[in-house]
Structure formats: structure tokens, C-alpha cells
Nucleic acid binder design. Sequence first.
DNA 1: TAGTGGTCTAGACCACCGT
DNA 2: CGGTGGTCTAGACCACTAT
Lengths: 250, 250
Amino acid sequence: MEGTGSSAPRLLAVVRILHRRLAEGAYPAGSALPSESALARELGVARGTLRRALEQLESEHFLVCQRGSHWIAQEPTRSQSVSVLRSFAQWARSLGLEPSGRTVSSRAGRASAQEARELGLRRADRVHRIVRVRGLDGRPVMVERTTFPGWLAVTIAALPPDAPSIMAAVLAEHGVGLGHAEHRIFAMGAATVDSRLLQVPRSVPLLRVLRTARLADGRPFEYSDDRYIGGSIALSVVSSAAAVETGMPR
Amino acid sequence: MEGTGSSAPRLLAVVRILHRRLAEGAYPAGSALPSESALARELGVARGTLRRALEQLESEHFLVCQRGSHWIAQEPTRSQSVSVLRSFAQWARSLGLEPSGRTVSSRAGRASAQEARELGLRRADRVHRIVRVRGLDGRPVMVERTTFPGWLAVTIAALPPDAPSIMAAVLAEHGVGLGHAEHRIFAMGAATVDSRLLQVPRSVPLLRVLRTARLADGRPFEYSDDRYIGGSIALSVVSSAAAVETGMPR
DNA sequence: TAGTGGTCTAGACCACCGT
DNA sequence: CGGTGGTCTAGACCACTAT
């Protein structure tokens, strides 16, 4: 009976509630959800609104459905879209999860040949390196080894060790957000250090992402080696071969 | 006041009409469309339905809008190439390597629920499944388990077991290339079957890519579970912060 | 056949834009 | 201020699935 006129608060609230319930196991993988009508009534929204939330969860592969049957919860692999460029913290919050960060080390240094190449610096230019363990709702899911160019060192070094988002600080201080990034994605076994930081056995399969990111104004921002616990997270990529056609199903 | 219960005929009809009008220059680039209410009245649908059509055109970059103002037609030449979509064979050759393929099995079957969903089929519709080991310069680097919709079965079954590229055959026979794909990327340990096919020890880290691909004309083409030997291959993805999606965050 | 999801409708309130 | 898009509601009919 009532609209809001701004962003989509009801929808977002419902999405968050469902994410939370799935994460907490209220709807175990493979089990059926209550009917749309029942769920809508319980959450105090119209069926249409509830439905848009379900469709979002479906596009994130948390739910599936078949005509005439109930919605089914899926194995909760979190999927991070790479095409839409967002920081870890932004991505986590969009899923209704709380991102955390713990800085393991943070120190100044000189660029290696590789770092210089990726960040557009000269070898031995000043850089700042940090190692962070990042988590979702308190559980560690990835370890991140990042190198920043020297001009960011002051901003980075000033951050508290549990800052959930470095991007937010950079945005606040320099007024520029992420522009674009290149990712190279591998699989690898957990090294001894990784296994200790992530609290998993050695040689467990990890998803390794080497990332070179630039700010919206084109300046190189970071070069990072991220290692995710294998099953806990999926990267999602949508790619197209250009060319727009007219007959668009979907 | 009336629903249909089947696919979405009204919505599709409206989308087609708008595509045609844009193509015919009824709404020149930069000009404003009539208001949603007026357009809905003219086309004989509810505003909600018209709106879903506009959102689809927006996601295809044909239209943009601002709050409180009209929808604006866009120049339809905007290439949105984010990630380049290429087949394994195309990719290998671009690296100067020789792609190879060995078909391990190839047989007809009926779609599982998951396959039906990914390929836009109904459960138990005819599909064709193949398992292939693919290599670079003679060394196996990945195993590929692919499901094709029934209408492709003849083309697929006719291929020689060492065909380096299925896409090339489809392109030759049906005259359509790859259009669009979605990937979900994980890390996992090699299962027993994988280790045998790839000639690596069990539990070696593999890069697992679940891929749903469509042809340029929008028809679902394949659903595939690809597993790459961890260190041998990296996926490379370039992403930018631009990206506008339908209505929802995705 | 009863119940579910898939689609569509008609109407409402709100925030925002131009005047 | 009136008009526009953005969001939400309540209710309807249909095709499909399960039993």
C-alpha cells in the first residue's frame, strides 16, 4: 500500500534476511523454502517484492526453482563477480555479510622488478606492502598480500590493523574510487604460511588471484596476490563477444 | 487483469516493438521517449510490464534514464566488451600453442534438473554429453565435461574424436559464433577420475570453471564443467567499475 | 486436484527534475 | 508546482508439479 521513492529498502532488507538465513542454515542445501506467499506474509512484504529478492538470490546461485515446485536452497558457495569491480568489503556487504580484516604485517620497502612493472614504477622505487587476512562473519576466507605505490604509503600505514576496507580510506582521503583491474586466476595448494593464516591444512586447494588495479583516474593503485579457501568462494565472470543482436531471449 | 502463465509473451512483444522503433529511428539517439504511462497506455500493457522491457533495453545499453526525467535513447554502437570470450582453441592459438582434444566419451542422454535450468530446457529433454581431455602442445591441461542441447547432438556426434575445436564445427554448420557466457570459478582437489585423465596425482589443486555459454543469437549452447591443472593455466579477466546492470544489484 | 511458481494488472506513494 | 521515474502493494489468471 505504500511506496518509498528511494533506493529499495524493503527489497534490500528481504535480500539480507534471506542471505542470513541461508548462511545460518535455516534452509539447508537441497531443502525447499516455504512458499512465496507464506514467506511474503511472514516478512511483511508483498509477494512481488519477495519475488524480486528470490530472483536476486537465484542470480547469485544461492537458490534455484522449478515451475510448480518450491524454491530450493543451493550449496552456499559465495560467488564474487569479477566483471563488476568492487572491493572485498563492498562485495561482502552486498551479500549481507560482515567483512573483516586483520593486518598481519605492514611495512615500507623497495619495488621488485615485477612490482615495478605492474605498478608503473621504476625498480627500487618506494612501495608499501601489507599482508591481511580477510574474513566473512568472523571466519577467515582469504589472505591478501598487497603492494601499494609509495604515494599511498601514508594513507595505508595510518589505517588501524582491523580496518575492514582500505578502499574506503583511499576514497575518503583522495576522492577517487576503483577504475579497472586485471585478474589472473590460478589454483594452487596452500603453502605453510597460508595454512597457518587461514587455519586450514597444508596443500588444501586455494584459488589464487593476482590482481593489478587502477583508480578511476588511471593511476596504478595496487598489485595483489589473493588466496581464497577453495570451496568457500567462487569468482563469477560474465563475458561477451561484443556485437549486440536484436532477438534477445533471456 | 489477465496473466498468461507461459514464458512472458507480453514482455517479449514490448521488447521487440521497442527494439524495432529504436532501429527505425523513431526515437533518435539523445532524444527522450514518451513517459512510461503514455507508452504503456499506447502499447496496451500495464506500466510494470513496460518498465521491465525498458530495464532490459537499459541493460543492453540502448536506453538510459535519470530519476525524474525521461528515458533517453542511446547511440546503439557502444561496444561493451568487458572480457573477451574465446574458445579454448582460439585462445591456445593466440598464445602460439597447438590445441588438441581427445574425446573420452560421447553419448546422448536426458537433461538433469540442473542441465535443464542452465540450458533453458525442460527436464528429460534430449541432450548430448561429452567428456574431453584437452591439451597444449601435446600435454593434457584440462578435462572438460560438457552438455549440449539436443538440437546440437547431430553436429557433435559427427565430430572426429580428436577434433581440436567444437566451436569451429558449430560455426561452420550453423553459422553462429559464441555470444555470451557466464563462468563460476573455484579451486578443488583432483578427483580420482580427473587424476587419471590428466595424469597427475590425486588431490592436486585444480582450477574448476563452470561455464554456461550462449550463441550470438541467444540460444543456449553448452553447459560445461572444466578442470584445469592448477599451475599450467591462468584465466585472465579485465573488469571495470562502469557496468550497469538491470534494476537490481547482481 | 490442490498448491506452487510465472506473469500481468491497476493503483498508490515517494523522491527528484524541470518550470 | 505538475510530471517523471522508482518502488511497493494486493489481487488475479495461468501452466506446471506433486500427490
